[in-house]
Nucleic acid binder design. Structure first.
Length: 485
RNA sequence: GGCCCUAUCGUCUAAUGGUUAGGACGCCGCCCUCUCACGGCGGUAAUAGGGGUUCGAAUCCCCUUAGGGUCACCA
């Protein structure tokens, strides 16, 4: 089995495209098939090298690899359509020789006029067929005279074309609905439909898994495969992904490209897991699946038929899940550059410092929903709080708190060694001696040390910060309370 | 407008003629607890509407409605 994903490098890798590619990849891996990456860059105007790189990077980041493609090669290359023009030209010539295609000299203005008239008359805006029966000699004469025609496929006027779709079953189209569409533009370039079908047939693609928007185009493609003398592949049109307002996903709905998600601290395994759940159900109420597990359970026939609305909340939940389960070593790696650029850590720390960093990561890891959040929530381990949470101040920074903070700071002198367990023992002792509730000392301390009211267990934070730092911050907070409250 | 696709909690989905219509995210409550998060327990909430077929319909058929796609010398 051979499948392909054929993005055009005119922008970033869209999550809709990423899901379609992922389904192709899963299908190929599940059936020990071949996944081909083909670059659809016949639109020279809009295609860019940057976009091409971005798309490849996006797939690498997601962990989706390809067996044949522009960078790795393969037996059916080249894999960039802009490098296959000779192939398309030869195929066009073949169709012309066989009378399956014909030149069309109608101008875009003429065609637009036809369309407008048809619209007005309430008819389908289809090609009128003006050049369909043009004598060969006349066509040749006009070309010789310098006219540059487009080329159309001669499609059957009656009968039906059936699309065999693994997700939707057989979809029947009336051939009368399909007009003689253009397969070759007058500027000398093939159209998407033509290039795509030529490639699919030459590259021996057996299953075309693509977005639903192509379903209506499929009868044309089948006509093309027939004309080309190629075996018609099996189709699977996966439902679209919609924005929360049920419209097409676009920029105004926030992040739509996989790089944006990466930049926002989303993990690739979370994104890929979420994408799997859009339009597919693994069964047995399972929701969290690794790539390998996804390969095991994936089944095109179980893909839903209806569009799915994109819900970031569930992605974030999955992301938090994967972030929590990750070894701290990897989490630290993910935020390393950020920590260095903020001046929080040295680019090349010693063993001891590294061990300490891993403990910090471990402490905040399960409280973060994204990689960004993880880095952000580590700030107070490196720098003293610049301010104190306002609500926290009102609640915990009382006049008594100032005294207690100073007394507690003094008491920390006794703690040896300075571990969470020992610190807690001393704290509990003070709490009992003062006959107060634990929170009355714990909360002000946390606010003094971190500037915020949330975070890991206080004694872990204290052990991580160390005695001197704790004492300094507590005394600073006491002074601040006296000056400001 | 023609053609095509689709329709279960707010969202993602399960249930392929017989279930108190299940799970997950979100939200709410309780428990755990030094806070937050995690975790545990519980709650909220759906078969678009109308006709058939059938002993029995979310499930099959028809109509309506709603959403989407496509009809380009874009891909």
């Amino acid at each position: 089995m051979r499948v392909r994903f054929a993005p055009s490098p005119t922008g970033s890798l869209h999550i809709g495209g990423a899901r379609t590619a992922y389904f192709n990849w899963l299908f190929a891996r599940k059936h020990q098939g071949v996944f081909v990456l083909r670059i659809d860059d016949t639109d020279l105007e809009r295609s860019t090298e940057a976009s091409y790189q971005q798309i490849l990077d996006g797939f690498r980041w997601l962990g989706i690899d390809w067996d044949e493609g522009p960078d790795v090669g393969g037996p059916y290359g080249p894999y960039r359509q802009s490098q296959r023009l000779e192939i398309y030209r030869a195929q066009l010539q073949k169709l012309l020789d066989e009378g399956r295609a014909y030149p069309c000299f109608c101008t875009p203005e003429q065609l637009a006029e036809d369309r407008a008239r048809a619209q007005q008359a309430g008819e389908a805006p289809r090609y009128a067929g003006r050049c369909r029966h043009l004598p060969r000699e006349e066509a040749e004469r006009r070309i010789a005279a310098g006219e540059r025609p487009a080329y159309r496929l001669r499609t059957p006027e009656s009968g039906k074309t059936v699309v065999h779709d693994l997700i939707r079953g057989d979809v029947v189209f009336d051939n009368a609905e399909i007009d003689d569409f253009i397969i070759w533009k007058s500027d000398g370039m093939p159209t998407y439909h033509f290039a795509s079908c030529v490639d699919d047939s030459l590259m021996q693609i057996t299953h075309i898994i693509r977005a639903e928007e192509h379903l209506s185009n499929t009868p044309r493609h089948i006509q093309l495969f027939d004309a080309l003398g190629a075996k018609v592949p099996v189709f699977a049109h996966v439902p679209m992904i919609l924005a929360p307002d049920r419209s097409k996903l676009s920029k105004r709905h926030g992040a739509t490209s996989v790089q944006e998600y990466r930049d926002q601290g989303i993990l690739p395994e979370a994104l890929v897991n979420y994408l799997l759940l859009l339009g597919f159900s693994p069964g047995e109420d399972r929701e969290v699946l690794s790539r390998d597990e996804a390969i095991q359970v994936f089944d095109l026939e179980k893909v839903t038929k209806h569009a799915a609305v994109y819900d970031v909340k569930k992605l974030e939940w999955l992301n938090a899940h994967y972030l929590r389960a990750m070894p701290p070593e990897r989490a630290l790696e993910l935020i390393w550059d950020t920590l260095v650029s903020r001046g929080w850590v040295d680019a090349d720390p010693d063993r001891e410092r590294l061990g300490w960093l891993l403990q910090v990561v471990r402490a905040v890891q399960e409280r973060s929903r994204s990689v960004d959040e993880l880095a952000d929530s580590m700030g107070y381990y490196f720098v003293r709080p610049a301010s104190y949470d306002e609500k926290g101040v009102r609640k915990h920074f009382t006049a008594q708190a100032a005294e207690r903070l100073e007394a507690a700071a003094r008491a920390l002198d006794e703690v040896a060694p300075f571990t969470a367990l020992r610190v807690e023992a001393v704290y509990r002792e003070r709490i009992a001696a003062w006959n107060i509730k634990g929170g009355e000392l714990i909360h002000p301390t946390r606010l003094a040390l971190t500037g915020v009211t949330v975070g890991p267990g206080l004694f872990d934070v204290m052990a991580l910060l160390g005695r001197a730092e704790c004492q300094a911050r507590m005394r600073a907070a006491a002074d601040w309370i006296r000056a400001n409250v």
